[in-house]
């Protein structure tokens, strides 16, 4: 049976963080696409398929909360795993993400093995 590499869309406005994520996730065998904010992610997702979204919170144009709410409002993305990856760690922000429909929360600086493990858990 043919299997494809898990496809991940990472959403982060920092080029440095995008480079770090690209390196860490491709090294773990994932196929990685990247968007620089929530708006760019929505535009990309309108035309493409993905298995899991990993998004930052603080971003221009559309932040991570807005992205999660938009995706959960669409039948196509209602069950898509969405992991938040943020420097924030307050219970209030986590609860807001959970209420918006996020699948999980990962605190930066991330550990590549833990991040990969979380991706595998939410996609299997």
């Amino acid at each position: 049976m043919m299997t494809h590499a898990t496809r991940i869309l990472t959403v982060d406005d920092s080029p440095s963080m995008r480079a770090l994520l690209l390196h860490a996730l491709t090294a773990q065998g994932f196929h990685v696409e990247q968007a620089e904010d929530g708006q760019a992610a929505l535009e990309w997702l309108a035309m493409n398929e993905v298995d899991v979204v990993i998004t930052d919170i603080n971003m221009p144009r559309m932040d991570g909360f807005g992205l999660i709410e938009h995706l959960r409002g669409s039948a196509r993305h209602a069950d898509r795993p969405i992991l938040v990856l943020s420097t924030e760690s307050s219970d209030e922000k986590k609860q807001r993400a959970r209420n918006a429909g996020a699948t999980g929360w990962i605190v930066k600086p991330f550990d590549a093995d833990k991040l990969a493990s979380a991706v595998r858990r939410v996609t299997h």
Partner: peptide, 12 residues
């Protein structure tokens, strides 16, 4: 890294 900065994962 401080213990609090090791990429804690919480699945909802």
């Amino acid at each position: 890294r401080p213990q609090s900065a090791c990429g804690e994962v919480e699945l909802f």
